[in-house]
Design a protein around this nucleic acid. Structure first.
Ligand SMILES: [Zn+2]
Ligand SMILES: [Zn+2]
Ligand SMILES: [Zn+2]
Ligand SMILES: [Zn+2]
Lengths: 151, 151
DNA sequence: TAAAAACCCCGTAGCCACTTCAGGGTCAAG
DNA sequence: CTTGACCCTGAAGTGGCTACGGGGTTTTTA
C-alpha cells in the first residue's frame, strides 16, 4: 500500500528519466524525499502520485510554472476554481495559436518543396532559388499568401 | 546601390533585434563586417541579403544549423541539389509531426476544459479533479482516446 | 573472497535561439 | 558641458531537461 521506492524504481514506474526526478526536486516541484542511511532517496505513494500528476500535465504540454500553480490551487480547496479554469483556458489559447502557426508553416513548406523536383544541380535547385530570391527582395512562393505571419 | 549601414540601421531594415545580429555573427552565420575607426560595425548589401536569407529561413522555422548547411550548399553550385531537397523534406516531416501532435493536444485540452463550468470551488473543479484522478491511476478524459501519444 | 556490474550521490555544463544585463565608449545637438 | 542616442564587450539567464565527471554503495557473479 505504501511502497518505499528508490529513485530508479520510481523512474521506471512512472516512465521518467531519473535525472528528471532529481531535476523536479531541485526546482521545487517534487517534495524532498526521505533518505536511507547511505543517502539514497526513498519515495512513497505520495511521490508516485505527485510525479504522475506532473507527467500528465507535461503530456498536456503545460509549463512547470503552470504545474506549480495548479499544485498551489489544489492545496487551497476552499477558493473559487476560476483561476484553474483560466490557466487551462490560457494554455489552450497558446496551443491553438501554435497550431494555426504550424498549419501555415506546413503549407509554406509544401509550396517551397514543390518548386524543385530533385536531380538537378544546385544552381538549378528551385528551393534554393526561391530562398535566395526572397532574400533579394523578390517575392517568394511560400510567403505570398494573404494569411498572417506564422511566427 | 551599396549601402553602408550601422548595426541599428540594419536591424530596422531587416526587422531584427540588433543583439540578434551580433549573435548571428558570433555563431558564424553572418560574416564579420568592416569596422569604422571607432569600432562600429558597417554593413553592405551582401549582409542585408544574407540576413534576410536567415530571417526568411527562420520564418520557416529552420534551425540555425540547417541554415548554415544551406549556405554551404549554395557556395558549391556544381553539386546535386538532392541534399537541399532532403533537408527541406526532413524539416517538413518534423513540422508535420509537431502539427499532428499539437492537434491531438488541442483535442485533449478541449476535453479537459469541458469537464468544468467555472464558478465552482476548487474542491469541485472538474479540471483539477480529472488531473488528480489521472495521477492516482484512474483513466482521464483527455487520454482515453485510441490515438497515439502526442509527445 | 574478490571482482564486476548495477545502482546511487553531487555539482556542473551543455542544448537552442536568443534576450538581458552590467559597465563601459563615442558622438552630435542644445 | 551635459544630455541623449547610439555603439562596444563579455557574461549570465531563459526552459526543461540531458550528459558528464568523479566519486561511493550494493548486489551478483566467478
Ligand atoms: Zn532542388
Ligand atoms: Zn517565403
Ligand atoms: Zn474548475
Ligand atoms: Zn489525460
Amino acid at each position: 500500500m505504501n511502497p518505499r521506492l528508490r529513485i530508479g524504481e520510481l523512474a521506471i514506474q512512472c516512465g521518467v528519466a531519473l535525472e528528471t526526478i532529481r531535476y523536479y526536486e531541485k526546482v521545487g516541484l517534487l517534495p524532498e524525499p526521505m533518505r536511507e542511511a547511505n543517502g539514497y532517496r526513498v519515495y512513497g505513494q505520495g511521490h508516485v502520485e505527485q510525479l504522475a500528476f506532473i507527467r500528465h500535465c507535461r503530456a498536456l504540454d503545460m509549463s512547470l510554472a503552470d504545474i506549480h500553480a495548479l499544485r498551489q490551487f489544489a492545496t487551497q480547496p476552499s477558493g473559487d476554481c476560476g483561476e484553474i479554469d483560466q490557466l487551462i483556458e490560457t494554455h489552450l489559447a497558446r496551443v491553438h495559436e501554435r497550431l494555426t502557426s504550424l498549419q501555415n508553416l506546413e503549407r509554406q513548406l509544401l509550396t517551397l518543396r514543390a518548386t524543385c523536383a530533385s536531380g538537378r544541380c544546385v544552381q538549378e535547385c528551385g528551393i534554393l532559388h526561391e530562398l535566395v530570391a526572397a532574400a533579394q527582395g523578390d517575392g517568394c512562393v511560400c510567403h505570398t499568401d494573404d494569411t498572417p505571419g506564422n511566427n
